[in-house]
């Protein structure tokens, strides 16, 4: 699971959960997979993300080094920043671990890099 994906996931489909976002990450195996840098792509993605959630997610798994907590107004001109964002969003892969719903505590396993967000019928709203 990439951190860009974590930024999109919620557990609010669980009965009684209001926002279910962000999910806490517990990582037991993290891999770094090189991805070609594409500044146009990263520039377009950043405004669509919850940056604070991304920073906290990266920090919680020990990968926030050098990543600013907030985005500067002219971030698209700062290539060093874009490369850091690229690394954190696309190159860090949580291979094994679990995600935890912030309200219910329900855990979602991550296995072989793929989060399992399946719920039983009884758990769904």
């Amino acid at each position: 699971m990439k951190l860009i994906t974590h930024n999109m996931l919620t557990s609010k489909c669980i009965k009684g959960v209001l926002t279910g976002f962000p999910l806490a990450i517990n990582a037991t195996d993290i891999k770094i997979k090189e991805v070609d840098f594409n500044s146009e792509f990263i520039t377009r993605v950043i405004p669509k993300l919850d940056w604070e959630v991304l920073w906290c997610a990266a920090n919680s798994i020990g990968h926030s080094d050098g990543l600013p907590k907030t985005i500067e107004p002219k971030f698209e001109e700062d290539e060093e920043f874009l490369k850091k964002a690229h690394h954190v969003l696309l190159e860090i892969e949580v291979e094994e671990g679990h995600l935890t719903c912030p309200e219910s505590g329900r855990q979602f396993p991550i296995s072989k890099g793929i989060p399992n967000m399946l719920l039983t019928e009884a758990e769904v709203q």
């Binding site: 699971m1 994906t5 996931l9 919620t10 557990s11 489909c13 792509f41 967000m117 399946l118």
Partner: peptide, 18 residues
């Protein structure tokens, strides 16, 4: 292709308007 995948029933666990 830059890609990720989630084991999920349809699209139930995604944020809105993405």
């Amino acid at each position: 292709v830059i890609f990720d995948t989630v084991n999920m029933d349809l699209i139930t666990a995604f944020n809105d308007n993405l």
